[in-house]
């Protein structure tokens, strides 16, 4: 393999990785006890909607996918998102969503926590329900 062809392959691989990240699929999932419309997702992650029927909602952030989630779903950057939660916490005593490290932790938490709502980039396994795929 010549240097030129190696560079070409590397460039193609990088391009694929970038495009894969840019178009990564995102799945908003919830504990099976949650009955939620996909139009409620924004309100849940802004602390506006705290209950689904009698179930207290527990939004969970996914550190590995938060940037994609904020850009594609919430349409805001991390600074704005954190400020919203600081104001919510300051005014209403709400606790901001805990941040999990990745899909495994999110799925594990959502499975065992009634009311939990999270998001992952890998197709959701059994034990959680899909609210919406982005």
């Amino acid at each position: 393999m010549t240097l030129r062809s190696a560079l070409r392959t590397l460039t193609a691989a990088c391009g694929f990785a970038v495009s894969a990240a840019a178009y990564a699929e995102l799945y908003v999932v919830a504990n099976p006890a949650v009955h939620l419309d996909d139009s409620d997702i924004k309100d849940v992650f802004k602390g506006e909607k705290q209950f689904a029927g009698a179930v207290k909602l527990v939004p969970i952030d996914n550190g590995a996918a938060q940037e994609i989630f904020l850009a594609d779903v919430m349409r805001m950057d991390a600074a704005r998102y954190n400020t919203i939660w600081t104001k919510k916490s300051f005014r209403e005593g709400l606790i901001p969503p805990p941040v999990k490290s990745g899909d495994i932790e999110v799925i594990s938490y959502v499975r065992r926590t009634p009311g939990a709502v999270g998001y992952v980039v890998s197709p959701p396994p059994n034990g959680v329900i899909l609210i919406r795929k982005y």
């Binding site: 916490s89 300051f90 805990p98 999990k100 495994i104 932790e105 594990s108 938490y109 065992r112 926590t113």
Partner: peptide, 22 residues
Amino acid sequence: KHVSEIGGNLSRRASEDGLPMH
């Protein structure tokens, strides 16, 4: 999975019994 469970338990305990201070 083990770490996740420990972290989850800690998060849950912090949420339920802890004193979030800001």
